Simulated scan of single mutants.
Amino acid sequence: MSKEKYPTLSDSSMVTEFVLLGFSDVLELRASHAVLFLLIYLATLTGNLLIVTVTTFDQGLHTPMYFFLRNLSVLDMCYISVTVPKACVVLLLDNGVISVPGCAAQIFLVLVFTLPELLCLTVMACDRYVAVCLPLRYPAVMSPWVCVQMTVASILSAVVNSGFHTGNTFWPSFCQSNVVHQLFRDTPSLLRLSCSDTFSNEIAIFVCSVGIAGGCFAFIAVSYVHIFATVLRAPTGRERGKAFSTCVPQTLVVTVSDSSAAAVRVKPSSTPPTIQDTVTSMLCSIVPPLSNPVIYSLRNQQIKEAVQRTMRFY
């Protein structure tokens, strides 16, 4: 899909819809991209659904850590379902037109699933810290009621945060162009189209991103420093191996998720869009949800054993 198909709007025109651009104008390439994204989407749904299934029906996995892992898998399935199916439609039909309300809804949903995922990873780090460093206090600190409270709090905070940023994104006027150089809508790509001063919007995004994501990352980093220091003092190799089998996957997931988010949101909206931005944005929307079940399945012995028991049962 080329930009020439959608001319720049005049200054007097107001945007009533946006147009998403794909990677190529060649039908064969668009079809191959769509098939690839669809396969990744199905693999992501299958892997995360498998984790949800085994952590729900395996009694040995009814612990706080796997409760939050199940929440993480549900969030991953919801998040990728907001972005990838529409991207496949854009690629296959060469029609990326979307209304302003539809665009706002997608941005809201992307944000509402992103923040709870980050908070879920943070709580999982807290869970491992208490389990490894304060084992005697674990039943009281990570009780089922506390886990439910933290889940509800993360969802409510995500709704408030998403509503604020969505409203902040669509408050400026869009009158210069309606062509979005992405396969789905995100805040930076839309701010590039504004004919208003978006400096305050960018400051708000930067402050919230640094405050929330930076705070969570710092908490996770400190937690794992204490965890690994405690694990290395463990008297037996078996205890160290068991601790590493649960901590290492979470460390990898946090690294993938945070680096992906930073790659999309750090770039200023005033920077001209490039094809690399489109590719990076798309990869950041599909890699973390796909990597989570892969990392946990390959590195977590309890998950692998639970999957084997589930497969034998069916």
Rank of each mutant, 00 (worst) to 15 (best):
Q276C: 02
L283P: 00
C247L: 05
V264M: 02
P273I: 04
L283R: 10
V279I: 13
P272A: 08
Q250P: 00
V253G: 03
S269D: 10
S285P: 02
D258F: 14
P272I: 03
S281C: 09
M282R: 08
K267M: 01
V254P: 04
T274V: 06
T278R: 15
V253L: 06
Q250R: 00
V248I: 15
V279Y: 08
A263F: 03
T278Q: 15
V279M: 07
D277F: 05
D258T: 14
C284P: 00
D258Y: 15
R265Y: 02
T255E: 12
T255M: 13
S285Q: 09
V266S: 01
I275N: 06
D258N: 15
V248K: 04
A261T: 03
A262Y: 00
T255N: 12
V264T: 04
A262M: 07
P249Q: 13
Q250Y: 12
S257D: 05
L283T: 03
T278V: 07
C247I: 09
T271C: 06
S257T: 14
A263C: 07
V279A: 12
C247K: 00
D258Q: 15
V248Q: 09
S285H: 11
S260I: 03
A262P: 01
P273N: 12
P272H: 10
S260M: 11
M282Q: 10
D258I: 13
L252V: 14
D277A: 03
A261M: 07
K267C: 00
A262R: 13
D258C: 13
P272F: 10
D277E: 04
M282P: 00
P268K: 05
C247A: 14
V279W: 10
T278C: 08
P272T: 04
S285D: 02
P268N: 07
S270D: 09
T280Q: 13
V266P: 00
V266C: 02
S281L: 08
D277P: 05
K267R: 13
S259Y: 05
C247W: 08
T280W: 12
P249V: 13
S259H: 12
I275A: 06
V253K: 05
D277M: 07
Q250A: 05
I275R: 08
P249A: 12
T255A: 14
P273K: 11
V254E: 12
P268I: 03
S259F: 04
P273V: 05
S260T: 06
